[in-house]
Design a protein around this nucleic acid. Sequence first.
RNA 1: GUGCCUGUGGCUCAGCUGGAUAGAGCAACGGACUUCUAAUCCGUCGGUCGGGGGUUCGAAUCCCUCCAGGCACGCCA
Length: 564
Amino acid sequence: MINIVDDIRQSIKDLVKQSILKSIENGNIPEVEIPEISIETPREKQYGEFSTNIAMQLTRAAKKAPRQIAEMIINEINPEGTYVEKVDCAGPGFINFHLKNDWLYDALKIIQTEKEDYGKINIGKGQKVMVEFVSANPTGPLHMGNARGGALGDCIASVLEAAGYDVTREFYINDAGNQIEKFGISLEARYIQLLKGEDAVEFPEDGYHGEDIIEHMKEYINLYGDKLLDAEPSERRKELVNFALPRNINRIREGLEQYGIKFDVWFSEQSLYDSGELWETINYLKEKGWTYEKDNALWFKASELGADKDDVIVRSNGFPTYFASDIAYHRNKFLKRNFDRVIDLLGADHHGHVARMKAGVSAVGVDPSKLEIIIFQLVRLYRNGEIARMSKRTGKAISLTDLLEEVGKDAARFFFNMKASGSHLDFDLDLAVKQSNENPVYYVQYAHARICSMLRLLEGEGVKVPQIEDVNLGLLQTSEEIELMKKLAEFPDEIRICAQTLEPSRLTHYVLDVASLFHSFYNACRVKGEEENLMKARIILVDSTRIVIKNVLDILSISAPERM
RNA sequence: GUGCCUGUGGCUCAGCUGGAUAGAGCAACGGACUUCUAAUCCGUCGGUCGGGGGUUCGAAUCCCUCCAGGCACGCCA
């Protein structure tokens, strides 16, 4: 639960602030308002571990040259009792802080103490947050958009958990409304066609044309024959939907479980109809004056709440639109279930929904900033350097199941989390299955397996990971060791940034860095066979690296093999 | 036409709440296995950060504009 990087940043902030106050006191700097002191990590090693640009920011107010201000601040800094070893001024007026290595050794102690909890922080303070993602249309199989949304949403949820939030993963089942009607009509048409021939009935233009509809009906006929042929059509459709829908939902659930995703709540849209919440919400909007009638339909004044146009919530045929139930759904999230924050993941093809959904949330009296909608860009699959649309095996559109079969869960989840959600993603199917240095997943997993193998070998010789108190960590001095320790020390802060930006792609990059620094260390330094004290210190470093890689992969829900 | 996303070395991307010489990986080229896994490492090559303006001590990062690609603009979801 310790974020040592952040703690040090805070302590440096304090040092700087005290120093500026002192300089003002003794008249070296005129009385100015001190802006927020930002502490950054310089790219170049020569500039130390941390730096601040505060002197440059004070230039105008203090009416002095930035380097002059920097010098005065440095003169007044008293680093006693901190990790700071040296402070100097460089470039246009940066103040650079050089740290004693002790902070790195302390970081290793924290890792060895916290073990599988290392990285966890508590900026969430138990706040209730819902992440709603995938929410795929249950009328068909999961597609690539769902795959990316699934990987992203699940990792965002895991990161938030690691950051101390009380997280609920939720899947919204669109089991009501128009598309279910369409689903029923499609099933019915296939049912009749299968029993009475292709020409017995025309398949609706806007129906679901997928093979899976036909499959469902073949199975139904196998089980129940033609008993619905003379049934009343609406009853017949209902029966067929009741047959096929749960099967689809189960299939989706199983597919997602293979993908490493387990939802806490499967929320049914139909339940909003059944509980009356849907009409409650519509009537509430009416009462509050957020609606008007036009062309026999009921419109929601979204444009008065920031959207670019109004939208229909009840159609002229009396049926509510999807948007209406979505408002009711979000009202339920915030007002019935009291989530402090709600995060929705939507594919880029739904971005038009963002503004009006926020409008909907405001209209039911919820601060719209509590609803965060993440739009992720769509996926293009490549095979042999060309866009791949079809599954190798089935010849149909590539589903999540096909993807998992072809590249596996680890590669899929890693690749989908390698790019920021806002970036368009080209998924290279050939690369994802390649067992070589070109493939980043293996690179990371290999580092983990390599460490496990080292520790296994040592243990075989009776050398175990020592108790941290018995180790002289000060022996870790080479640049490879220092760089690796630094990276390990950053992990909790990395979680912090991921949780704040809701951008788990940082984690894949981070763990790649860890793996890379470890491999460099491995090639530069030996562990087994070194002088005992040095060996012990390096075992701690190696084991700490293992812990960090494992913890990151756990958050990504990617396996960390012990042998490869 | 309007709105959103994207444009960084041959390829895939980081960096984008402005900061110090623009970073990785892959590809290419040259090296390193009698010693803990070479699925690894070390080195070299490679960029007017899509173009053009502006804001300032300082811009890949902020603003404007243009260009290119993706997506969306339904009484569908």
